[in-house]
Simulated assay, not measured.
Amino acid sequence: MAKYIIRYGAMRFIGVFSARAKDEYVRDDKVIIRTKRGLEVGEVLCEATDEAVAQLNDPAFGSIMRAMSAEDEKQMLHMLGDTQREVETVRRVIGEMNLPMQLVDVEHLFGGERVVVYYLAESRVDFRDLVKALASELQTRIEMRQIGVRDEAKLLADYGDCGKPVCCNTHLSEMPPVSMRMAKLQKATLDPTKISGRCGRLKCCLRYEYDTYEELQRDLPPIGSDIVTGSGRGRVLNHEILAGQLLVRMEDNRNIMIDASEVLTVLKRGNGSTGGSSRRGKRRDKKDAPDEGGNPNQSNPEATED
């Protein structure tokens, strides 16, 4: 029995799903799957080889019911057409109950088993009466899911500053933690308006090359190091990490750029770096930008109602 990795749901979950005997699928095929939430529409990403599954963190599991048919597409379009009505209904009921929450989106599962309501709130909300009212009006099971601002962007954002679709709504299955230290090490501008994504938090793409920068920086003498080169002694002022170059102030007060391979000896290692590795820099980084991938930005199911 073949297995495939499939992406599904408004939050773009990733799971491993078993196909029926002799059924075969290729990338981008649309399929009807059964998850723990019910019947849903999924998109085939690849075959679930051992190597591919090893890359997933706590994947969901389920089964592939069938390839998506023309009738299924009509049903999905009809369901999507009802979504706006459901959004208006949920927003109206929230307003009538004067609840301290902000509606973000509504997801109606393909099989009609439930409607998932995504919302923002600064504190815990008692929405038991809301769930009962919505279950009565929409005639289905209601699931309330509190999310963070990064998940809001994942649901609603379209394009980033780069001109491409936002990463959180395309290839990212998890949103990695991002800190100001990553921006400083890569010498990105520290202007918040330029390094913040559609969610208002630091851009996820700052995380992509950070490990490479850290690895390359380890091979360079730290800033403040006293070194000996073929041209004499000097002190490291700065790094050009990707180029493998150092900005050095020589004994005659000239500032020159040299290749790291020209360093003959490190007489005294400095304790500073562009990544904020000094004690003072660490305190500042922690204050400026705590981990932006923590629990407050993860979606959390809270209640359902039949």
Rank of each mutant, 00 (worst) to 15 (best):
D259E: 15
L264K: 10
V266R: 05
E262M: 07
R284S: 06
S273C: 15
R283N: 00
L267C: 14
N255S: 06
N255H: 08
R280Q: 10
I258A: 01
R279E: 11
R280M: 11
S273H: 05
S261F: 11
G281A: 07
G275H: 04
G272T: 09
G272L: 09
T265N: 12
D285R: 00
G275P: 00
I258L: 08
L264N: 00
R269E: 15
G275S: 02
G270T: 07
G270D: 06
L267E: 15
G281Q: 13
R254T: 11
A260D: 00
S273Y: 02
S277Q: 05
G270P: 09
N255C: 07
I256P: 01
G281T: 14
G270W: 07
S277P: 01
R254Y: 03
N255A: 04
L264I: 08
V266L: 00
S261W: 12
K286N: 10
S277L: 00
T265H: 14
R283C: 00
R254G: 01
I256W: 04
L267P: 07
R283Q: 08
R280W: 05
L267T: 15
D259M: 13
G272P: 02
R283V: 10
G270C: 06
R269K: 15
I258H: 03
R269A: 14
S278W: 03
V266K: 04
S273N: 12
T274N: 12
R283E: 00
E262V: 03
S278L: 02
E262P: 02
S273M: 05
I256Q: 01
T274P: 01
S261R: 15
R279Q: 14
S278Q: 05
N255P: 01
R279A: 12
L264S: 02
I258N: 03
K282Q: 14
E262Y: 06
L267W: 12
G275R: 01
D259L: 09
S261D: 15
S261I: 10
M257D: 03
K286C: 04
A260S: 11
K282I: 07
L267A: 13
S278I: 03
G272S: 12
M257V: 10
